[in-house]
């Protein structure tokens, strides 16, 4: 119970942050308010996505380069269901998540038996194939013409139009994902994941069914990616194969590496720091150089791994389990040497 008591001020802090976020649309910021809200909605969407991706490299220590494939699957599931069948947004999100999870299981079950490098490259190939299929199967996805005119989601019969409504919606989605992820982290599953990350063989010897837990992680991660895609499709109302290219996976990976692999708070702060930076670059850089912004993400990835593999934010590390850190110091995970 001692730890629970000490949790109280932190919970107050979190509630304060949430209250601040919910008040944001009503602050007198003048004309730039809607622009700011759109950036914040994007940042929150990326928080959701990053929390989903974090499960695989952060909790399990496996590099997943194909996350954007599930994001794209979710977005196209949502877009097509809205356009053709006019299904409600509240049914679409679980369906998109389910579709993501199904593909996650189909891809994960055979590939998660492989070593980490092979897994990384297979997930990469998967996301490339997803984009190729979206681009070429015109009868289903309209290919490079994209899917325009996706209907907005509606709450109790009221279709969302305002920027603040979408901002509240994504905050709601974030809270759900956050609840799922934090509960998972503290559960038996979460502890099994950490044990896999620290030492697969030791975990296996302690009775952790590697494949089962890894596939679960991959499926949950894919489901969150799918749900994020569903929100994106209904928010942006237009989707295109180019939105789901490999670079998105890198961007999301960069967010979690920046904030600290495996740290939930760090992941969210990483998104909050880097996504507005991207928007800033969009304003500052000339059009033809904007695609060069990934240069910065590349540098971030390299420098973070070299200098601060635990993430840039020092106080985030405090919140991690002390025992885990002690264990890490004692047993450096070498390369089989």
């Amino acid at each position: 119970m001692k730890t629970r008591m000490s949790d109280i001020p932190r919970k107050c802090l979190y509630l304060g942050i949430l209250a601040f976020a919910l008040l944001l649309p009503w602050l007198p910021l003048g004309g730039s308010s809607n622009y700011l809200l759109r950036i914040l909605t994007t940042a929150t969407l990326y928080m959701v996505l990053a929390l989903g991706l974090n499960i695989v490299p952060g909790f399990n220590g496996l590099l997943d380069l194909g996350y954007v494939g599930f994001y794209g699957i979710g977005a196209y599931t949502a877009g097509l269901l809205t356009l053709h069948y006019n299904v409600s947004f509240w049914i679409i999100v679980p369906l998109a998540a389910l579709n993501g999870a199904i593909w996650g299981i189909l891809l994960g079950a055979p590939t998660l038996r492989l070593t980490g490098d092979y897994f990384a490259i297979v997930t990469f190939g998967f996301s490339e194939l997803v984009v190729l299929v979206i681009r070429n199967e015109l009868w289903l996805t309209r290919g490079p013409m994209g899917l325009p005119g996706i209907a907005p989601p509606s709450v109790f019969g009221h279709p969302l139009t305002q920027d603040w409504e979408y901002f509240y919606l994504i905050i709601f989605l974030l809270l759900i994902v956050l609840f799922v992820v934090t509960r998972l982290e503290d559960s038996r599953i979460g502890r099994a994941w950490y044990s896999i990350r620290e030492d697969e063989i030791a975990a296996q010897c302690s009775g952790v069914n590697l494949i089962q837990y890894k596939v679960t992680a991959f499926a949950i991660s894919a489901a969150i990616g799918g749900a994020g895609g569903a929100f994106y499709a209904n928010w942006f109302k237009f989707i295109h194969p180019d939105m789901f290219k490999f670079w998105e996976s890198i961007l999301i990976l960069c967010l979690i590496v920046f904030g600290g692999l495996g740290s939930i708070v760090g992941t969210m702060l990483g998104a909050l720091a880097l996504i507005p930076l991207t928007e800033l670059l969009r304003v500052v850089l000339p059009q033809n150089l904007f695609s060069g912004r990934y240069l910065i993400y590349g540098v971030v990835l390299v420098l973070m791994m070299r200098l601060r593999p635990d993430g840039l934010l020092p106080f985030v590390r405090f919140q991690q389990n002390k025992a885990r850190r002690a264990q890490k110091r004692l047993a450096p995970t070498g390369n089989g040497e």
């Binding site: 980490g116 490098d117 590349g298 990835l301 390299v302 593999p309």
Partner: peptide
């Protein structure tokens, strides 16, 4: 360092050089 760190570095270098 752990395998993951080296892999992420490799991806980072690739993105960096490309851009």
């Amino acid at each position: 360092a752990p395998r993951l760190a080296a892999l992420i570095t490799a991806i980072g270098m690739s993105i960096f050089l490309q851009n």
